[in-house]
Write a protein that binds this DNA or RNA. Structure first.
Lengths: 190, 190
DNA sequence: TCATGCATGTAAGAGGTTACATGATTCG
DNA sequence: CGAATCATGTAACCTCTTACATGCATGA
């Protein structure tokens, strides 16, 4: 009974879909070549906390994408900087990712976990955490407002409304969070 | 020259700190024994999208915690249900985790990525995504309001203000998101 | 010359997701 | 009796984080 070998399951059968991390890098590369370092900075500057990204991930995805022809590494310039350029295949992969729509996203807020489980925490702990959080959100909001101000003052290039819209989201959420903290009942806020 | 062997790096030197996922399970178990299934449901009900958790993770953490004496599995009851009870060591591990404070949290919103990279998307794609998102947030808000209503109508047990506060956060954020969408400039909203 | 910032990368492990597999119970 | 729901779990894989290692360039 020499049966046929079990077939290897075929992965990535058609197009080897890229993940959201790679897609975000390709998105930024539409504006021109950038190094891994630049990409980390760009993500941080334009998306703040709403798109977390570490340099390890970035270098890994860049290497993967270079292997697959989605980007091409350039010659190293100043210091060891190696700029990557998006290719037509890269643009196609990005468009394909975009066509699938944004998925659900991931949110994990330990702060909310603290609040939810508040009755099992030592009294005072939750309060001090909320005080810290208030300070943090206030600082964040201030920074966002300063950024908007700087973009508004026609400093150099015209502002992309999409980038501004993302900044507005940050402002909106920071304000909402502050209001929420301030309206928490006294049993919780102390 | 028989030098000493390289020392094995010692991990978890002191107390083998638990992760936030395990901590959340221990938190819920403070209210009494729960099965893995219950825990998934509890997290979903009380924290909604702000604490994502899959059953694979839950069963894995429960097994790990049982091995380490933080919880004890009970006898299987109805169906295959196996309720876990928190131990004193479990309560200690939870308190220790809490004392470290909530960390930064993780947020990854592909929707914001779409907005930020909007100028590189096919015209119309971003608009339809925003329309869908508006519908989704409206539905979410409705559900939250219904939940608050149900909790407010003294249905059975008195409501824990902490759980209510978490629900308020959901309401606040959903409203803020809706306002943000509605105020997006016409170049983006269409 | 020394600290700081720019810049790239590797290794290892922890955490999270998806698909699969199985079976009990309830209700219509 | 069949469908839906309750309930547990494994395997494989992907993704993300942390720590480590290296070196160039700039400017005080």
């Amino acid at each position: 009974m020499a049966g046929p070998a079990l077939p290897e399951p075929v992965r990535h059968a058609v197009t080897s879909e890229i993940n959201a991390t790679a897609a975000s890098l390709l998105g930024f590369l539409h504006d021109g070549p950038l190094t891994g370092w630049d990409l980390v900075a760009r993500a941080e500057q334009t998306m703040g906390p709403f798109w977390s990204l570490t340099k390890s991930q970035v270098y890994r995805e860049l290497a993967y994408m270079a292997e697959n022809g989605l980007v091409t590494p350039g010659v190293t310039g100043r210091r060891e900087a190696r700029p990557y350029t998006i290719t037509d295949a890269g643009r196609a992969a990005f468009a394909e990712w975009a066509a699938r729509g944004p998925g659900e996203g991931t949110i994990r807020l330990p702060l909310l976990l603290f609040v939810t489980l508040g009755r099992h925490l030592e009294p005072g702990l939750l309060r001090s955490v909320l005080v810290e959080q208030r300070t943090h959100q206030t600082k964040l909001l201030k920074e966002y407002l300063a950024m908007r101000q700087a973009l508004g003052d026609g400093e150099g290039d015209p502002v992309d409304p999409h980038v501004l819209a993302t900044l507005e989201y940050g402002i909106t959420v920071a304000r909402a969070t502050l209001r929420w903290i301030d309206r928490l009942p006294p049993e919780i806020r102390g």
